[in-house]
């Protein structure tokens, strides 16, 4: 049985009386400890799938199951301890008026978990942030440091599943490498399951075992990592995406 099971998911938004189909009839399943990637260009609905899992976007048809159980509305505290998310923009996902300490201890307070002091310090160590960052405000941190805080926050409740919404696209290429390394290390240490969204095929290839190419809210093609490396794709769109990604790389 898969840890994440999505069947025929559709998400429809109501935009000023006009129905916008953000996601149409998408199915995917991710076994425990696997990393699954969603690739597509802007407007392909890849982020909407993550938001639908968390209850931030409405499910208009289909079902989402986590460890065999259909998700409930509202998601509730038990869900929070199982599934957490890292957002794309580290400048927008940390509360600007909370210190790092407050940001990291908030989930502990919500769930009544004790020893907050020790746990916050441990969390900073885990994401390789110096302890001196503890009482700073987000605006005193760089983008990469903020994203580390966001990752630490997502891990405070020790979830099994991490939803990653373009976690490095707002970062410099060099900081992206460090962040990806951090995520890979944490995944190995904690046996996490990743569902990762990115527009960058190379990033997905680096992090994920399997991936789903999406376009206009629909699934185009599912590929394994080996398929991708050998350029064995069936659809024209997946190939175009592959060519554009490979083309911008200077070989060396």
């Amino acid at each position: 049985m898969s840890l994440i099971e999505i069947q025929n998911l559709s998400v429809t938004f109501d935009a000023k009386g006009r129905a916008v189909h953000a996601v149409r009839d998408v199915s995917l399943s991710v076994p425990a400890r696997e990393s699954f990637g969603l690739v597509g260009e802007s407007g392909s609905g890849k982020s909407t799938i993550l938001r639908a899992i968390c209850g931030l976007a409405p499910i208009s048809a289909g079902s989402i199951r986590i460890a065999g159980e259909a998700v409930r509305d509202p998601r509730g505290k038990a869900f929070a301890r199982r599934v957490q998310m890292v957002f794309q923009d580290p400048y927008a996902s940390l509360h600007p008026r909370h210190t790092i300490d407050r940001t990291l201890s908030e989930p502990l307070a919500i769930h009544g978990i004790g020893k907050a002091d020790a746990r916050v310090v441990q969390a900073l160590d885990d994401v390789s942030l110096d302890r001196s960052f503890r009482f700073r405000y987000p605006h005193q941190l760089s983008g990469g440091q903020r994203q580390r805080v966001a990752i630490a926050r997502a891990l405070m409740l020790e979830p099994e599943i991490l939803l990653l919404d373009e976690p490095t696209s707002a970062l410099d290429a060099s900081v992206q490498a460090e962040t990806l390394n951090l995520l890979a290390r944490l995944r190995d240490e904690r046996g996490l399951t990743f569902l990762m969204v990115s527009h960058d095929l190379a990033v997905i290839d680096h992090m994920c075992d399997r991936l789903l190419v999406m376009q206009h809210g629909q699934a185009v093609e599912e590929l394994t990592r080996d398929d991708l490396a050998a350029a064995r794709m069936q659809t024209d769109y997946a190939r175009a995406l592959f060519d554009a990604s490979a083309d911008r790389m200077l070989e060396g």
């Binding site: 931030l56 998601r75 509360h95 989930p107």
Partner: peptide, 23 residues
């Protein structure tokens, strides 16, 4: 996003309004 993050942690409405929105 930071309000969404608080909701994802399981924070209730009162907590979000008082601790996250009001500041």
């Amino acid at each position: 996003d930071y309000i969404a993050a608080a909701r994802l942690q399981g924070a209730g409405g009162a907590r979000i309004v008082w601790g996250h929105v009001m500041p």
